[in-house]
């Protein structure tokens, strides 16, 4: 299993850098991920999306549909790409500390 140093701690991640131990996530982890993608400050808008994703995942065991994310956060897709350079699935989910979506999604 690959490992990654984030915010001073070492975490187990998959080969694409997604956290494998969701419960060890902290806000600093999100900031550290963002910094790796050259986003050095997380705004309220970032947190709205990250928190929504994370809570939805914890409740439902899966990331929300993009459509839902758009509706709940009020950000459209291009806005989401502005906030998260690699997009909602590759960046936002990663920063929120949930595993990479797999299985025909």
């Amino acid at each position: 299993m690959a490992q990654m140093k984030l915010a001073g701690d070492t975490y187990e991640v998959d080969e694409n850098g997604f956290m494998q131990e969701t419960d060890r996530w902290t806000e600093d982890v999100a900031r550290a991920y963002a910094a790796r993608e050259n986003v050095n400050e997380l705004t309220d808008e970032h947190w709205t999306a990250v928190n929504y994703l994370r809570n939805y995942y914890l409740e439902n065991g899966i990331c929300p549909m993009i459509r839902r994310l758009i509706k709940e956060t009020g950000f459209n897709l291009s806005k989401l790409y502005q906030l998260f350079p690699e997009g909602p699935a590759q960046s936002a989910c990663k920063w929120a500390g949930v595993p990479k979506p797999t299985g025909c999604v």
Binding site: I62, M65, T102, G103, C104, V105
Partner: peptide, 15 residues
């Protein structure tokens, strides 16, 4: 394989 559970599937489609 997506991890979609029955209740979440129904909820999503309702949405």
């Amino acid at each position: 394989p997506t991890g979609l559970r029955p209740n979440v599937a129904m909820d999503n489609l309702e949405f």
